[in-house]
Design a protein around this nucleic acid. Structure first.
Lengths: 335, 335
DNA sequence: CTGTTAGCGCTTTCAA
DNA sequence: TTGAAAGCGCTAACAG
């Protein structure tokens, strides 16, 4: 099937010059005659020469590839981030390999293994809902592969990361609800292993206190982000002593599942119970009664910063730099 | 940053044997002593040896990578297909590189270029809404890279493809509506450059005739799949002489956009006007008034077949085989 | 069963 | 400004 490929050797022969001259000409080496360069480029074109990446990689011991693991490409939040990463990375002639963990630890680990064996030059990660340990990422360190986390970073480990100012956003959400006279606010949070869950809780807690709203233990739930568990927790809220007036959800999926649980109980979401969440699905705007407000996280910007940081680390030839913690501002969007 | 990597040479030295023995042992070559093999594997483990893919590729002149271009990973249909492709392909130790065209010809071309320069062993493609020419894919042929299309294939060119029995499904849809006593059915079809648009139209046409339903020229619209154009076409339908009773949409996105246009005109979708479409977004089930029915296309199965076909072609060392056309059955789901 | 050797396509000293 | 030659890590004849 494969045609024999055109190599610099062919170009050299056709032009009756040495392969090193061809190689240099193709790289725009300064010490090559302008006429020679022209001839080489012309011939390369004519022969449909395409450089063999494997040979270059082998020689340079670099793959010009970065690996990205994240939970779901289907979430607008992540797909926007990946677009940004691709834009930044490809401008520097790097390639991107994306892998979805689907919130499974096992898939995340497999992706990391594959990144190691394909020898990527760096990794950008947003950890799965199941990930509680930093363990697996140590393996990357072992091979000297730098990592930058975005949005979902492991807790209690100093790492390079880019994240939204979640706690402030959560505070703002409660502020917004309080201003509307809503007092009883429940929270359907994400797994405790995620730092961004803690931050949501902190913001919630801080604001509830500040505005003298009642903090009810039963109003604080956390889910593993699956539909089943989210539904279960929402039903617990609905069956509780006092129905909350609003539910602050970890993200749009959680909100969607929770809203459906509501409907099944005969309540109209965003009329009988208000929902507010972190935006990652533009599709919620197609609902008949969309959530009152949501937090925009500027995924593109976050992806951009993460990619830039990673490139910076890759280019810095020195040993590990101080981990950076970049915070991107969020914005409360009132619908 | 990079640690110096462990090579088979290191293993050979540590064990005081030749590198070819190590290479063979690692490949489980039959003519290598069991004891030697064991020693080699042990040492490889101990030194954290990871084979350098670049060297293997260079040697074998194969990348064990296949490229996939498709419109949007966010559509459930495509993301399921990609999962299937990954499953099949990785079972044979191939890797997958995915690229989204976002329905832009230019992005599709860029992806193809990048597939060529990274020398993928094969390509699976579902063309963009803007693609009208087979032209760009010829470039792949030139380099002997086999292609399999799935779902969206170019028209009027004999190619390897996997597709649903769209025309039959479209027929079934009209049949279903006719049975409910619905006579005036409009169609919001995709761009004419896609074979799957033609097939939808054929099925529609055939059924409308068969059931003696009126075929009104103004009821037949096609959109470029963008929100703007779809909205425009839907508004034309709504402003026409006679309101259709049902609209048969190219896919769920088209349905979503069209339904929103409805709402803006004060009509309740799926009560005042029925919608039916090809399923690619499970999210539509969260709508208050979801579409009556939709066509399930078994994306996973389609992806699976496409991947299997591609592998078959890659493994068949001969010159181009006869193009295959694999049809996967669809199913009408009543909600 | 194992070792020697050539070479995949390219970059890069070193020498001219 | 160009060429010769070594070598990146691995595989695979060929030769024992």
């Amino acid at each position: 099937m494969q045609k024999t490929q055109v190599t610099i050797k062919h170009i050299a022969q056709a032009l009756n010059i040495s392969i090193s001259t061809v190689s240099r000409a193709l790289q725009n080496h300064p010490r090559i005659g302008l006429r020679t360069k022209e001839k080489v480029f012309e011939m390369a074109q004519r022969l449909n020469y395409v450089p063999n990446p494997a040979a270059i990689l082998l020689k340079k011991n670099k793959t010009f590839t970065i690996g990205v693991v994240l939970p779901h490409l289907q979430e607008e939040f992540f797909s926007q981030a990946i677009t940004a990463i691709e834009d930044v990375i490809s401008a520097e002639n790097y390639n991107v390999v994306v892998s979805q963990s689907r919130d499974k630890l096992e898939r995340e680990n497999r992706a990391i293994k594959s990144f190691i064996s394909s020898r990527v030059d760096g990794v950008i990660a947003s950890i799965s809902a199941e990930t509680t340990q930093y363990y697996q990422f140590r393996e990357l360190e072992r091979y000297g592969i730098p990592i930058v986390f975005f949005d979902r970073a492991p807790k209690d480990v100093p790492v390079n990361k880019v994240r939204g100012n979640i706690a402030d956003a959560a505070f703002e959400v409660i502020d917004f609800l309080a201003n509307k006279g809503i007092k009883k606010v429940a929270i359907l949070n994400g797994p405790a292993s995620l730092e961004i869950s803690d931050e949501r809780l902190m913001g919630y807690w801080g604001a509830m206190k500040k505005f003298n709203l009642p903090i009810i233990q039963n109003y604080i739930k956390s889910t593993d982000l699956s539909k089943e568990d989210t539904t279960k927790k929402m039903i617990e809220l609905l069956n509780g002593e006092e129905l909350p007036e609003a539910v602050f959800c970890f993200n749009d999926y959680v909100a969607l599942y929770a809203m459906q649980a509501c409907k099944q109980k005969g309540l109209v979401p965003n009329k009988d119970i208000m929902f507010v969440s972190f935006a990652n699905l533009p599709i919620t705007t197609y609902l008949d009664n969309p959530p009152l407000a949501s937090v925009e996280q500027f995924a593109y910007q976050m992806g951009e910063k993460a990619a830039q940081l990673l490139l910076k680390i890759i280019h810095a030839e020195k040993e590990t730099l101080e981990p950076e913690d970049i915070v991107v501002n969020t914005k409360l969007i009132i619908h």
